[in-house]
Design a protein around this nucleic acid. Structure first.
Length: 933
RNA sequence: GCGGGGGUUGCCGAGCGGUCAAAGGCGCGGGAUUUAGGGUCCCGUCCCGUAGGGGUUCGAGGGUUCGAAUCCCUCCCCCCGCACCA
């Protein structure tokens, strides 16, 4: 039995020595394909294997189609996880040690050494390189690099200078989840609770107290309802009066605490009991109406400011609370509120929708059966439903001043902005879910970080440029184009500076490091430079801005670029020529996890920095890989490393399996049992080819022509699938379906298998390159990896042969079907359809309807004689007329009688006289009468 | 909530107006074999059927059509993203 690992190693070595995947400009058309460089806080795993194998299969395919293919790869190490990992290992964190020894397959003694980021980078890049070589990717390894390389950092600095010049990097302030204890922003995986929480922006409308300089900041998500405010709510409990940016605010204690993390200057003045203010009046800004402060229990002091405005017409909670209060004589007395005050709180309807008449909140509360403000579940539902309806279909009514007739969705934004501009409102950030708790056990808050560097992705012009270019791009699968459109719209400014991590410092503000997704946007251009860097021709000190401007953007001239760089002019020109030749990237193939981040930034930065002809041409997206139905996790396991998969199953098995496991962005599941099965298939393939490949080709039979014809169909299918990057379909057609045809062929006694083997090996070579290379060399001296991919040749399609084989398959099936019903069956008599039926069938095939067919047939005297039978035949056959097959059945059966006999185990005879008439009658062309005895 | 994808026969998964009881793989059952229970090759695998046939299926319910897994509408359910993290 063939040892695949031996074969694979052999050819990997030969490929490397022959440098067949090292790509340099020549006169062929180029194809530049890239895969996002892997992040090295662990070993490469099945997820990387999938993305990279798709890329490699496509690279190989394109190479065989005659393109000069550049397929490079580097390693990503900037950011925080590697530092975090080093700390964990240094700390001897048990869980980490377990995961890294058990799943990442790092030997314990090696692992314990990895206590600094540098050692980790060194170790895992070495491991990755080995794994990638073991699986035999056709990567041009002369261009490998790591993102902490000095030269790479120089390249990043250059990029950031460019963006800065263009005004695309701005200073800004933004809210983050923040742990007061750690004094650090927290990421999802740093959280104990509240991973799903998002930061919600409340509008805080400032209601001024009558006769006193005190602001009641009412937090709301529906600022447009300000026109319907009848009162405000506080909870009868302790609050705080604080100085906030020079104003005196009345807020809950929790709110005060939160305010201290914002960019506002805050100072507590004193604690107060809300009761002191209940019954007093405040002024509704903008509308200048005086409304009372009233008590309500539903108010959550831990949500925003702890003060809310009441809009009974549109907020079910407010409506219910007012109704409660009306009924609660005791409470009114307790707070000294005159009954009439509450009775006078009439809902003010300010939004119109087609569906909701009257007072919407009242209607909906009644519909759902809300009894009091304590019916929290019902009220939540009512609030949601109402909000949804009004937001999407509502229109502002006449009582909303100059917002009248605006759509609610628009008015909301507008009012929010206008109020803030006028100093009548502010913003308050709050979590959408609570609590949010840090791993250290501390409750997190929203902190507003100021003066950070941002990539100005919200910039309309920048967005439009990306959006426009997207329309010219090929996105695979194509429905992702819509996804990209939406994501581009949704993208906001992104903080690109960090305080900790590995990476490049912002060149004009060295306090900050460039965030690790922000330094991975246009690095594909760096592959051009990397070759020269690795050759020692180019060093960091040569890479001046002027030099990079010239080689990457064509700015300035070679002469002065060379001077600035301290390089020979011809070197500079060569690098420039390389870049001109290879750029842009023709295909970037990536996992779908990068859609909403990296791939977006990739587009934004290319569009900003390079001229249009250098913008990306195509993006392909693929799904994840799970393990026996379980999600893989780098940090928790389970995980299957690339290296282990190759060790266990072999490179080609791994590749073929992963390519066939799923299509496009659907997720693949790695089932070791199926992988074993595939390994068997491949071994069978190997020995099959080996047994036949060197045989002398013999005279072509009809069956051989059938095989060739089928091979042509496979070629067409595979090419079509690969052109769309459908690797699953391609492997299915190239491997499994051809295999099935070959099986049939051999069963039929075919002896000329060799006629398709060259094509088959070429066809399969992008998917199982080692085995194909090995087999190919049984007969050839060239590399199958560099052969041209089989072309579909219409002239080799043989419809007749295909029909004949189909006919035989069907016939044998039918005989077996009938045989089931005959005990001790020994013989089969076959009577193909009579001559007149064939004539009639020909007419039927060309007729539009039954009537026309019969009319035509009845013109023939012979047909008329058996008119009734003809009519019945036509009626019976018409519906499936496309299935009618006209061929010389008798001859075909005679020629293949041995085969039919051996397949069915019956003695075959064409002696029609033995077939009863009622059987003969059912025969139609392509489906003879069968009589089994 | 918003956006994107999806629900197909035991499982994975193709099909996306007729060629569909629906490819292929896996699993399962049976047979063959120079049969070691693991390899290979056949056959079967929704239900019924002593003649190649019939019946019922493709999340649910309506509709369009001569004809729907495939098109339209409504509903239910599942997955992914929503960020400063690679």
């Amino acid at each position: 039995m063939a040892d695949f690992r031996e074969i694979e190693k052999k050819w990997q070595k030969v490929w490397q020595e022959s440098r067949i995947f090292e790509a340099d400009p020549d006169n062929r058309q180029k194809f530049f394909i890239t895969i996002p460089y892997p992040y090295l806080n662990g070993n490469l795993h099945a997820g990387h294997t999938r993305t990279l194998t798709i890329g490699d299969a496509f690279a190989r395919y394109m190479r065989m189609k005659g393109y000069n293919v550049l397929f490079p790869l580097g390693f990503h190490v900037t950011g925080t996880p590697i530092i975090g990992l080093a700390e964990l290992i240094a700390k001897r964190d048990e869980k980490t040690i377990e995961v890294y020894t058990k799943y990442h397959d790092v030997p314990l003694e090696d692992l314990l050494e990895l206590t600094t980021p540098e050692k980790i980078v060194e170790y895992f890049s070495r491991e990755a390189l080995q794994a990638l070589k073991n699986i035999g990717y056709s990567i041009d390894w002369r261009r490998v690099f790591t993102t902490t390389d000095e030269e790479y950092q120089r390249f990043i600095e250059w990029q950031y200078w460019k963006l800065k010049e263009m005004g695309l990097i701005v200073k800004g302030t933004h809210p983050v989840r923040y742990c007061p204890h750690d004094q650090n922003p927290v990421e999802d995986h740093d959280l104990l609770m509240g991973e799903g929480a998002t930061i919600v922006e409340f509008t805080v409308i400032k209601f001024k107290l009558e006769d006193e300089d005190l602001v009641f900041p009412c937090a709301t998500l529906r600022p447009e309802t300000i026109f319907g405010v009848t009162n405000i709510w506080v909870k009868p409990t302790k609050y705080v009066i604080a100085e906030v940016d020079g104003e005196k605010w009345f807020v809950s204690r929790e709110a005060y605490e939160k305010l201290t993390y914002t960019e506002k200057s805050v100072k507590q003045i004193r604690e107060v009991d809300a009761r002191e203010y209940i019954g007093k009046y405040v002024t509704v800004p903008l509308v200048n109406r005086k409304v009372p402060i009233l008590p309500a229990d539903f108010v959550d002091t831990d949500n925003a400011t702890g003060v809310v405005m009441s809009v009974p017409a549109h907020a079910p909670y407010d409506y219910a609370a007012i109704e409660d209060l009306k009924r609660d004589e005791k409470r009114l007395q307790e707070f000294g509120i005159d009954r009439s005050v509450v009775e006078n709180l009439k809902p003010i309807v300010l939004i119109g929708t087609s569906e909701l008449k009257g007072v919407p909140a009242e209607e909906i509360a009644r519909e759902l059966g809300v009894r009091s403000q304590k019916d929290v579940e019902l009220l939540e539902k009512a609030t949601k439903t109402l909000y949804k309806k009004e937001y999407h279909t509502g229109v502002m009514l006449e009582n909303t001043m100059n917002y009248a007739r605006m759509k609610v969705s628009e008015a909301k934004e507008k009012i929010h902005e206008d109020l803030i501009k006028a100093g009548l409102a502010d913003v308050f950030y709050e979590f959408s879910e609570k609590p949010v708790v840090c791993r250290c056990g501390t409750k997190c808050v929203v902190k507003v970080v100021r003066d950070q560097w941002f990539l100005n992705y919200s910039n309309r012009e920048w967005k439009n440029k990306v959006l426009n270019h997207l329309e010219n791009m090929r996105i695979i699968p194509n429905y992702y184009k819509e996804e990209f459109r939406n994501k581009i719209e949704w993208l906001k400014d992104k903080a690109c500076a960090r305080r900790k991590g590995l990476g490049t410092r912002i060149p004009w503000d060295k306090e900050w490091l460039i965030e690790s997704l922000s330094d991975s946007t246009i690095y594909m251009a760096y592959y051009i430079l990397a070759k020269y860097i690795n050759e020692g021709v180019l060093k960091a000190e040569n890479m001046t801005n002027e030099f990079l401007d010239y080689v990457l953007l064509g700015k300035g001239n070679a002469e002065s670029a060379a001077n600035s760089a301290g390089l020979e002019k011809d070197v500079v020109e060569r690098i420039r020529a390389d870049f001109e030749y290879w750029y842009p990237v023709d295909l970037r193939s990536s996992g779908k996890d990068l859609v909403a981040n990296h791939l977006l930034f990739y587009l934004f930065h290319h569009v900003a920095i390079f001229p249009p002809e250098k913008w990306p041409r195509a993006i392909a997206v693929n799904g994840y890989v799970s393990l026996e139905g379980k999600k893989m996790s780098k940090s928790k396991g389970p995980l299957l490393t690339m290296k282990r998969a190759v060790q266990q199953y072999g490179a080609d098995v791994t590749r073929l399996y992963i390519l066939h496991a799923a299509e496009y962005d659907s997720d693949a599941d790695w089932k070791s049992r199926e992988v074993e099965g595939l390994a068997n298939h491949l071994r069978r393939f190997y020995s099959l080819v080996k047994d036949h490949y060197l045989k002398q080709q013999q005279r072509m039979t009809m069956l051989d022509r059938w095989l060739v014809s089928r091979m042509q169909r496979a070629i067409r299918e595979v090419r079509d699938a690969m052109d769309k990057l459908q690797t699953r379909r391609a492997v299915n057609a190239a491997f499994f379906e051809v295999m099935n045809d070959v099986r049939w062929y051999l069963r039929r006694g075919g002896e000329n298998l060799v006629i398709i083997l060259d094509d088959w090996l070429k066809l399969l070579s992008p998917f199982a390159p080692h085995i194909c290379e090995d087999l190919w060399h049984l007969k050839h001296d060239s590399f199958v990896s560099l052969e041209s991919y089989p072309e579909f040749d219409e002239s080799k399609i043989n419809e007749e042969a295909e029909m004949a084989e189909e006919y035989l398959k069907r016939l044998i099936e039918d005989i077996m079907e009938v045989k089931k019903f005959v005990e001790g069956a020994k013989e089969v008599y076959i009577h193909p359809a009579d001559e007149w039926k064939i004539e009639a069938a020909k007419v039927v095939i060309d007729s539009k309807d039954v009537g026309e067919a019969i009319k035509k047939l009845m013109q023939d005297e012979e047909m008329r004689k058996i008119g009734k039978e003809v009519t019945n035949f036509v009626k019976r056959v018409f519906k499936d007329r496309k299935k009618l097959v006209i061929l010389n059945e008798k001859e075909l059966i005679e020629k293949n009688s041995d085969f039919i006999e051996s397949e069915t185990g019956l003695k075959l005879s064409l002696d029609s006289s033995k077939v009863p008439d009622e059987k003969k009658r059912v025969a139609i062309p392509g489906k003879p009468a069968i009589y089994v005895l």
